[in-house]
């Protein structure tokens, strides 16, 4: 039942230990970690590497949006523990961006709720990625695939 938005990196092991600590009803813990993928920009014949990006967000609204998404997951599945940690600021390829963890008595609910949380936070939480390219800064455009992934969950399972 925790949502955090922070500039600092997170320690996955320590986060999961804290999340499940002492709760013996948890039989399965599903975890998603999002990383900054190394990207390439094609500019004519040149292929330039994008090494870093800056994540902007809307302080105040971001936390509310993540709490709403978490609350929706808890309405849909029987969950014992949920955690969303999302970073902002400048991140380099290989850096961790987001951690989503869901603990439930059974694995099906944990897997499904974890996937739901990731799909919804990509389209409903106010974050924007600005890539650093060799030819200047470029705002990342939203992917239709992300909307489709989020729409899968429009109906309750």
């Amino acid at each position: 039942m925790t949502v955090r938005v922070q500039e600092a990196d997170f320690d996955i092991g320590a986060e999961l230990d804290r999340l499940t600590g002492g709760n013996r009803r948890i039989g399965g813990l599903a975890v998603f970690v999002g990383l900054v993928r190394e990207m390439h920009l094609r500019d004519g014949l040149h292929r330039e590497r994008i090494e870093a990006l800056t994540l902007e967000h809307y302080p105040g609204m971001t936390e509310k949006a993540l709490e709403d998404i978490e609350a929706e997951a808890r309405r849909r599945w029987t969950l014992e523990a949920t955690l969303i940690v999302h970073r902002y600021g400048r991140l380099e390829a290989g850096d961790r961006i987001v951690l989503v963890a869901v603990g439930s008595p059974h694995r099906d609910a944990a897997f499904e709720a974890c996937e739901f949380l990731v799909d919804w936070l990509k389209t409903k939480a106010p974050f924007w990625k600005l890539e650093e390219t060799p030819v200047g800064e470029k705002w990342v455009e939203a992917h239709e695939g992300d909307d489709a992934a989020a729409a899968r969950w429009a109906k309750k399972p």
Partner: peptide
């Protein structure tokens, strides 16, 4: 809170405009 363009502004303190989200 995300809303639509027909939402009333009565009593609103803050209105924001932004491109589609690209987090995660």
């Amino acid at each position: 809170r995300t809303t639509t363009f027909d939402a009333l502004l009565t009593g609103a303190k803050e209105v924001a405009f932004f491109p589609p989200f690209t987090g995660g």
